[in-house]
Amino acid sequence: MALEEIIGPVMVGPSSSHTAGAVRLGNLARLCWGRPVTEVDLYLRGSFAATFWGHGTDRALLAGLLGLRPDDESLRESFRLASERGLRFRLHAERADGAHPNSVRFVFRGEDGRTLEVIGASMGGGAVELQSVDGFQLRATGAFPTLVTFHRDEPGVIAAVSALLAEGGLNIASMNVHRQGRGAKAAMVLELDGAPDGALLARLEACHPGLERLLVLPGPEGEV
């Protein structure tokens, strides 16, 4: 581990997995939703459901949904901030067989009736993992700038996306492709050495007819 990971992270206490990790998870879920959160149900599982109060996990998750960072002391006040910003939330406990012990299922609802379900877990030491978006199993940590594609499983999507990334000078650090079946829904998680800019993103969105949606996680840049 790098020295600054040993002496760090800088965070609001008391727990790297139950507080700092929960803030990151809230942020990842918010980025998946992709617009300001107005209404959300949070289903806490395992140890998150059992010990959320003692570790401020509830306040930390909400802080992430509001876009706060793990070292922002105002995360203690996230319930008040949420009501000031008109964010309605409900906390639940749920049992889910085989779920990670520190995981949360978020269900977002937009004013236009759109919904999105996101499942993520806090893996320990503040690291997190996105595990499912709208029922689609995938794996993204947010530790790098990350591009997630939701597309139809057909030839050419992966080549089109990676060719544009190459043109944009963006190196791919890791790449995972998931599909529900041949020719069915698919997703690709690309961890990059830099984040795509707006112009590149617009070209990526239009690069192949099989592409349905793109998601960009900016990575820990700027986070201490």
């Binding site: 002496i7 965070m11 609001v12 727990s15 700092a20 401020g56 002391e73 030491g125």
Partner: peptide, 12 residues
């Protein structure tokens, strides 16, 4: 314990 800003060194 009171949710103040700390440096995990090495842990919280």
């Amino acid at each position: 314990a009171a949710m103040r800003r700390i440096v995990a060194a090495p842990t919280a």
